[in-house]
C-alpha cells in the first residue's frame, strides 16, 4: 500500500512544480513528473506476485502472467506524452524567440 502513497506524493510534487514555478521549462518538467506517477500507478495495479512478463513461451507451461492490459494502455500513453511534450517545448522555443525569456510573468501581450 505504501507504494501507492509514494506514487501519489510524486504526483503532488509535479502539481506543486506546475503551479508555483514561473519558468516554462520547469513547468514542462513538473508535467512530466505527473505523467510518470500516473504510468507507474497503472502498471502497479496490474502487477501479480511471482508473475512472468507477458510473453508466451513453450518452456514455461501454464505460467502466471502479469496483467498485460494496463501495460498496453500505458505504452500508448507514453508515446502520446512524448508528442505533447514536444509540442510544449516548441511553444517554449517560440516564446523565447519573441520575448527573450522563459519567464511567464513577462509574457503578457496578446499579440502573437
Amino acid at each position: 500500500m505504501i507504494v501507492y502513497i509514494l506514487c501519489f506524493i510524486l504526483f503532488l510534487v509535479g502539481l506543486f512544480g506546475i503551479l508555483t514555478s514561473r519558468n516554462i521549462i520547469k513547468i514542462v518538467i513538473g508535467l512530466s513528473f505527473m505523467e510518470f506517477s500516473v504510468y507507474l500507478f497503472l502498471v502497479l495495479i496490474g502487477y501479480i506476485d511471482n508473475g512472468q512478463a507477458p510473453i508466451l513461451s513453450d518452456n514455461i507451461a501454464a505460467a502466471k502472467y502479469v496483467d498485460p492490459l494496463p501495460q498496453a494502455m500505458v505504452l500508448t500513453a507514453i508515446v502520446i506524452g512524448l508528442a505533447t511534450k514536444a509540442m510544449l517545448l516548441t511553444m517554449a522555443i517560440r516564446i523565447y524567440k519573441k520575448f527573450n525569456t522563459f519567464d511567464i510573468r513577462k509574457v503578457t501581450s496578446l499579440k502573437g
Binding site: 502498471v43 502497479l44 507514453i78
Partner: peptide, 13 residues
C-alpha cells in the same frame, strides 16, 4: 514490475 516493453519505450522517450 515485469514490463520489459514499457521499459524499452520509456528509455527511448
Amino acid at each position: 514490475l515485469k514490463a520489459p516493453d514499457l521499459a524499452i519505450v520509456q528509455i527511448v522517450v
